Amino acid sequence: MIQQLIYNKRNRLFIVVLWFILITYFLIQWAIDDKSFETGVAILTLFASNIFSIMIPTQKDTFKVDITEKEIKLKLKYSDDSKVIYPIFKYKDNTSIERKINNLINFIYLRLQLDIKNKIPLKDSLAEELGDFSSEYEVTYKNENILSLKFLSYFYYKGAAHGNSEIITLNINLLTGEEFEFKDIFRSYGYEPVEKIVKEKLLEHDCKDMYFDFESIHLRVNQNFYINNNDNLVIVFFKYEIGPGCCDIIEIEVNRKDFLDFINPNGPLSLLYSKYTEDRYIDKGHTFDYIFSLHKRFKF
């Protein structure tokens, strides 16, 4: 939770106020010739070199992510209107993370066998076979440290009875520029209860009577998912993954209150959900995090 300590405005205000209260106290002790002054100065000097960076952390600016949208048309034999709309990210003052994010975006399209830089399929045979293709994206969640993206693509091969849709999700830790997966967000004992919640919701879905084998449905370590604007988790099942094509892509939204107890405290979503779980830190043994949350209960 160090990021929360440094980058949350209320946390920074509390640290600065506390620092000035302590320095004032020890100056008074020095004025009355109390030896605790020497001890106090030794302690405060440990923080003095960083106090101004806490007041105005320069790294805050690196959280400014600008997203521009670009549209390209693909060169396909049977279609003049196949297009791809994709995002390009500009990460202020942090070109390293910016490059990582855009490389992750490019890799999404490489998985779709598309070269978005040259506006062509990677294989000549695809240009000959695809009757239609389109792809667009949605930013489902963005804050200072988490970015969730959903890419929706539609394929139609010449001569096929119908087209197919596909969703690929991408979840990025903006503190590092790295992608994180489903296996990274929960404690080891959290998979079973979360899976149970998802299966209960699947039984409420319109396709509840059409699943191939309901008992065999399990959440994979690389399960497709994204965070939405309600801070909830959305689990994605591919078309044909658990049911027939008429069910299409199945998305199951899990309310945050149902999985807060299972969030990995060292995982990428711990900062996002800390605002809902601070009163649980002591119960979970995270007394270090709990101490930093106490200031919210203080009255000045």
Rank of each mutant, 00 (worst) to 15 (best):
E129G: 02
F298P: 07
D33V: 01
I197Y: 11
L130F: 14
E98M: 05
F151P: 04
Y154V: 01
V221H: 14
S96C: 05
F300A: 05
F300W: 14
V234Q: 06
F52R: 11
D33T: 02
P193T: 01
S165K: 13
E181R: 10
E215S: 13
K90F: 14
V221M: 10
I28Q: 09
F14M: 08
K123Y: 15
Y290G: 01
K64V: 02
F151K: 00
V65A: 00
Y109Q: 05
L44G: 01
H218C: 04
E181W: 10
Q113R: 14
E251L: 03
M1P: 11
D33N: 13
I97S: 03
Y281A: 00
E195K: 08
E98D: 12
A42M: 07
K201C: 01
M210H: 13
H218W: 09
K296R: 15
E195A: 05
P121K: 03
I43N: 15
K75Q: 13
P87Q: 00
I282M: 07
Q29A: 03
I21F: 13
T58Q: 08
A31T: 09
Y156A: 01
L5W: 10
K60V: 00
T140K: 07
W30G: 03
E138N: 11
K92A: 00
K239V: 01
Y25S: 09
Q59R: 13
K284R: 13
V17W: 10
K64M: 03
K117H: 10
L272Y: 11
Y211R: 02
L18H: 08
T176Q: 07
C247Q: 06
S216L: 09
Y226S: 00
E38K: 10
F212L: 01
H162A: 09
G163Q: 09
D132L: 04
L203P: 04
S135W: 05
K70D: 08
K296N: 12
T62N: 08
D279S: 08
L149E: 03
Y276K: 07
I32G: 03
V221T: 14
S134L: 02
E69G: 05
T277D: 09
Q59D: 11
L104H: 12
D231I: 05
K64N: 15
K9M: 04
E192Y: 15
F298C: 07
V84F: 07
N229M: 05
E278V: 04
L44E: 02
L104V: 03
I67L: 06
Y276A: 02
H162P: 07
E204H: 12
N164M: 13
K83I: 06
H218M: 09
S188T: 08
V254H: 06
P265L: 00
D206S: 12
L18S: 14
V198P: 00
I197N: 02
Y141M: 00
E38F: 14
H205F: 10
L130T: 03
R220P: 07
L170M: 09
D258S: 12
D93V: 02
T39C: 04
